[in-house]
């Protein structure tokens, strides 16, 4: 069932077959791994002696020093953690190799570290998060008559998908103060920004990581450096029925072409 088909007020139940990705050969969930992705054995941190000291400190601090929660309330923290778990699910990672996300976003909001701008029709980032979390709670109540935390992972995804699609069935007074697609952007851009800053994620995607003062020498044909590894692909499928497995334009993008990229390139 697509989230679009969800009628406001109708309670749907989705069978929570598994929260883990599936091996298409056996149809069974894959065992959690220390390192998902197609570069088994690749460990970017094993190269840290080849990095400059300033970079080493920044990257290792990220792995070792998890900032305390100072901005979100305990309830908001639990809720937001569940939201992060759906925007970047980590059920294929074993518990020792999960990447902490909430604390780093909390730190940014606590320190009021901005990206240098705010859209004119958006509240300050802190307020946007508080309002957005409230709206997510209202959508969960509206669709399933439960708290977001009380839902199955698939149900949680359906709640978030209504925000992605720009047709949340509840929280209307909140969306009057903050366009849905702008909130979605803030949320996903922050979350992916934390996950893919982590060396575990670099291992997963086969990214070479810091390279000063050593540099790279094999520039073409996707060749690995001597210390990088070859790709070894395996098949996997998202948990059955997971709406986030499908790609689709963020709603509002065509009518409001107002979501340009945030990162400089050239």
């Amino acid at each position: 069932m697509k989230a679009k088909d969800v009628k406001p007020g109708k309670v749907i139940r989705v069978l929570d077959a598994s929260t883990r990705p599936i091996d298409p050969a056996t149809g069974k969930p894959l065992e959690p791994r220390a390192q998902p992705g197609y570069y088994p054995g690749y460990d970017v941190l094993s190269q840290q002696a080849f990095w400059d000291a300033a970079t080493r400190k920044v990257v290792l601090d990220r792995v070792r020093k998890i900032p305390p929660i100072r901005f979100f309330t305990p309830d908001e923290t639990d809720l937001f953690r569940a939201v992060c778990d759906r925007i970047i699910p980590q059920n294929d990672r074993d518990s020792d190799h999960q990447i902490v996300i909430v604390n780093f976003i909390d730190e940014r909001l606590h320190e009021n570290r901005l990206d240098g701008y705010r859209f004119e029709n958006m509240p300050p980032d802190q307020k946007a998060y508080q309002l957005g979390l409230r709206a997510i709670t209202e959508i969960a109540q509206h669709l399933y008559a439960k708290s977001f935390l009380g839902l199955t992972t698939l149900e949680q995804e359906f709640v978030l998908k209504t925000v992605h699609d720009g047709n949340p069935p509840a929280g209307h007074d909140i969306w009057k103060r903050m366009p849905v697609h702008r909130f979605w952007h803030l949320l996903v851009q922050d979350i992916v920004g934390i996950y893919y800053a982590h060396p575990y994620a670099w291992n997963e995607i086969g990214f070479g990581g810091p390279a000063y003062p050593r540099g790279y020498m094999r520039l073409e044909n996707g060749d690995p450096e001597p210390w990088e590894v070859e790709e070894k692909r395996y098949e996997w499928e998202a948990p059955l029925g997971s709406p986030s497995a499908d790609y689709g334009a963020i709603a509002g993008m065509s009518e409001h072409p107002g979501a340009p990229g945030q990162r400089g390139t050239h």
């Binding site: 978030l160 952007h185 998202a238 997971s242 709406p243 986030s244 497995a245 790609y247 963020i250």
Partner: peptide, 14 residues
């Protein structure tokens, strides 16, 4: 971040 926009990616798709 480009993929959040270019493909609308999130969750398992991301």
């Amino acid at each position: 971040r480009q993929m959040t926009i270019a493909k609308g990616a999130w969750g398992w798709g991301m």
